[in-house]
Amino acid sequence: MRHSIIDLHPQRILIRSTNWIGDAIITTPAVRTIRRNFPNAKISILALPWVADVFAASPHVDEVILYQKKKEHSGMAGMWKLAGLLAEQRFDLAILLQNAISAAILTKLAGIPARAGYTTDGRALLLTNGVKLRREVKKIHQVNYYQEMLRGLGLVCGSNELFLQLPEPDIAWARAQAGGLGPGPLVGLNPGAAYGPAKRWPAGYFKQLATLLRRELRATMVVFGTGADAEAAREIEQGAPGHVVDLAGKTSLAQAMAMIGVCDVFVTNDSGLMHVGAALKTPLVAIFGSTNSITTGPYSDNAVIIQKNLPCRPCYKTTCETGFRCMLEITPQEVFAVVRKILVGAPTSQVR
């Protein structure tokens, strides 16, 4: 690193967001750190459309710029077009939370004079202010990953607490939806995970859990996810007919996030929506299979992680070829017992 970016006194800052919902949520403490170190700067964040709602109502950014990577900004021609649009805004500084070399190329093409970030992915020569990624940072929660980068750039880092502010119309919509569902606890179920099937607790287990929740606790369930989770949602509905609301693929991200915020408990795979629940402080039951709960678990004091200590995990594989024990050994009865304890206020271990 040549010097602290504080010494640059930037007036117009571009943040390149990460590309996935969970990663974007994990960067929210870093975005807050940037705002607090540059309280008078205009801060814009460049984000893909499916994560833009994470920052739409954030007081820490002044503008969300959409990176339409699958439309007008696709390919090299699209990147040149986007670079031209960014150049018109005359940014003084780009802070690259996304690690890809493409982020450094784009901001170089945009003529942004100061470009800061980790020197990973072969982009050291494209950065004016680079930070070397220390090995020990990879072993702790990823919230620290982005904060440590900013610390390396000379910023004073604030709290690691996740931050998510939602638009008032979406909050009002979620409250109205919840208010029309009748008495009893409202339990969110999230059977999806974009990473691959190795992160997905079986839909049949979610179905059995729905049956237990309705029979024992008179709960109403809301199923979250994308259109890709429609089949799983239909199977879950069979576990408690008439008492499961299928929202998979039927809401905006902001509406889904607001709905998670009104749930009494949220049962979820390791996914982007899991991190949403953590940021909103919704009581969570997070089910982990192939991934590492230490580095990517819900960053929340209001979460219980259920996982099996097997010699093969975390394997980080997208699919399992050795029996899927890490997920199959987590029973619906085990998850139900944790949900019950949360709802009645009984003490629970944060990792089971």
Score class of each variant (00 low, 15 high):
344 V>N: 06
13 I>Q: 01
232 A>E: 05
103 A>E: 12
71 K>Y: 07
119 T>M: 05
300 S>L: 11
153 L>V: 09
216 E>G: 00
18 T>R: 13
23 D>P: 04
268 T>R: 05
97 L>K: 02
18 T>H: 01
9 H>Y: 14
215 R>S: 15
185 P>Y: 07
92 D>L: 14
103 A>W: 14
195 Y>A: 08
100 A>N: 10
27 T>D: 12
150 L>S: 14
179 G>F: 13
147 Q>H: 12
283 P>V: 07
297 G>Y: 01
338 V>N: 09
136 E>W: 14
148 E>G: 00
8 L>C: 10
334 E>W: 06
137 V>W: 15
23 D>I: 08
247 L>S: 07
199 K>R: 09
291 T>S: 13
227 G>D: 12
287 I>W: 06
166 L>F: 10
58 S>L: 13
92 D>R: 09
105 I>G: 08
292 N>E: 10
352 R>M: 03
241 P>W: 02
243 H>K: 14
39 P>G: 12
256 A>V: 09
104 A>F: 05
65 I>M: 13
117 G>Q: 11
289 G>F: 02
168 E>P: 03
163 F>K: 10
329 E>H: 03
205 Y>C: 02
305 I>N: 00
128 T>F: 03
157 C>R: 02
113 P>E: 13
178 A>Y: 02
267 V>E: 12
348 T>I: 10
131 V>E: 08
247 L>Q: 10
189 L>N: 04
230 A>N: 08
49 P>H: 02
307 Q>R: 15
255 Q>C: 09
325 R>N: 05
328 L>C: 02
228 A>Q: 14
45 I>N: 00
95 I>C: 08
136 E>H: 13
278 A>T: 06
238 Q>E: 15
255 Q>D: 12
216 E>C: 01
64 V>K: 10
13 I>P: 00
348 T>V: 14
284 L>H: 02
81 K>G: 07
1 M>Q: 03
18 T>G: 06
77 A>D: 12
271 S>K: 05
124 A>I: 14
36 R>W: 05
19 N>Q: 11
148 E>V: 04
50 W>A: 04
331 T>P: 09
52 A>K: 02
222 V>Q: 00
166 L>M: 09
323 G>Q: 08
74 S>R: 12
107 T>K: 11
252 S>I: 09
42 K>R: 15
94 A>Y: 06
172 A>D: 15
266 F>K: 00
145 Y>S: 10
212 L>N: 01
285 V>Q: 07
247 L>K: 05
277 G>V: 03
241 P>C: 03
106 L>V: 11
297 G>T: 05
257 M>V: 12
45 I>V: 15
98 Q>N: 15
139 K>I: 04
332 P>I: 05
67 Y>V: 04
49 P>A: 04
199 K>A: 01
64 V>Q: 14
276 V>C: 13
246 D>V: 15
51 V>G: 00
317 K>Y: 04
333 Q>C: 02
96 L>C: 05
238 Q>S: 11
192 G>F: 04
47 A>Q: 01
48 L>Y: 07
266 F>G: 00
38 F>R: 04
182 G>L: 04
249 G>F: 06
336 F>T: 04
263 C>L: 04
260 I>A: 07
19 N>A: 14
54 V>Y: 01
296 T>A: 11
50 W>R: 11
347 P>K: 06
271 S>W: 07
16 R>K: 14
76 M>S: 11
287 I>E: 04
